[in-house]
């Protein structure tokens, strides 16, 4: 028969001695444990790495092998850096979904109630999830971008259409692959907290990143030229593009605007998380 003879030191002692209590650093530690202890998270991160590296190299190889049939205009606007980073477009799906799941996964399973009873101020949870997932994404995706760049250029060098990190804008662009995905991660976290459902969060995120540009393209071209550069997707993707259209934003301006969108969503998430019943 089970009886509870000892549930720990006498009440209160434990707390007083050890200085237990919620701090931002401790919540970061907790969120790191949560991130690494879900198998689905690890699989998705692995998928994102494979997408960036393998797809970048594959598409570079395809471009090189068809170079001789390309039209003069296509050759003129060819962007060897961006080509080797094309896996970023696919990886954003994995990163975005994972970002949304940071919160929606907790709302879906009820874990959020345990999280919020432990951290009743709530905002430290939003910051911790954002920081932990952004740092993990930045590290993994920047390394992946460099690997994809090196591998992709090796493919392109067979036709001497490769570039090097020394060329103007190239180093920025390769870092840009990781930076773009980091901001996508933050957009996902904010949307997950705002929308709370996985399906809703994913639909909103990719509606904005993938569908919105398509719709804008249907507008009269004088309009779409004025609107398109400021869309989150176009602004964000400017940072890993070297050969750009005249209307598009510069890499840092674009990234800054993309970060601005993420900041607005995170602020909205903070307000809502603080106010709403869990």
């Amino acid at each position: 028969m089970t009886t509870v003879t000892d549930v720990g030191p006498a009440r209160g002692e434990l707390t007083a001695q050890a200085g237990y209590g919620v701090t931002q650093r401790r919540v970061l530690h907790s969120e790191w444990t949560k991130l690494r202890s879900l198998r689905s998270t690890l699989f998705s991160l692995l998928a994102a790495i494979v997408f960036v590296v393998a797809l970048g190299i594959l598409i570079s190889w395809a471009q090189a092998s068809h170079w001789d049939q390309e039209s003069p205009i296509d050759r003129l606007t060819f962007d060897p850096t961006n080509t080797s980073l094309s896996g970023v477009f696919l990886a954003q799906l994995a990163i975005g979904v994972l970002g949304v799941l940071m919160f929606s996964g907790e709302y879906g399973t009820g874990m959020i109630r345990a999280t919020i009873t432990a951290v009743p101020h709530r905002l430290p949870v939003l910051w911790a999830k954002s920081i932990v997932f952004a740092v993990v994404t930045f590290v993994l995706m920047t390394v992946s971008s460099f690997v994809a760049f090196v591998g992709g250029q090796a493919m392109l060098s067979s036709k001497h259409i490769d570039t090097t990190l020394g060329h103007p804008g190239v180093l920025t662009a390769v870092f840009g692959g990781g930076l773009y995905l980091t901001v996508v991660a933050l957009l996902g976290v904010a949307l997950g907290a705002l929308v709370r459902s996985t399906a809703g969060g994913i639909a909103t995120l990719f509606g904005v990143l993938l569908i919105l540009p398509l719709i804008v393209n249907f507008l009269p071209s004088s309009w779409s030229h004025n609107i398109d550069p400021y869309l989150p997707s176009s602004a964000g993707q400017a940072v890993f593009t070297v050969v750009r259209e005249s209307s598009s934003l510069g890499p840092w301006t674009g990234l800054l605007l993309f970060c601005g969108y993420a900041a607005v969503l995170l602020a909205a998430a903070a307000v809502v998380l603080r106010r709403r019943d869990a």
Binding site: T33, M111, T117
Partner: peptide, 27 residues
């Protein structure tokens, strides 16, 4: 608190669930 509705992520082990909660307090 033990709430009526389950408050555990289904994909996490019991140990890691408790560990993550403990870490918020430095336990």
């Amino acid at each position: 608190a033990l709430l009526e509705a389950r408050s555990v992520h289904t994909g996490r082990s019991a140990y890691n669930h408790l560990l993550a909660l403990a870490q918020t307090h430095g336990i």
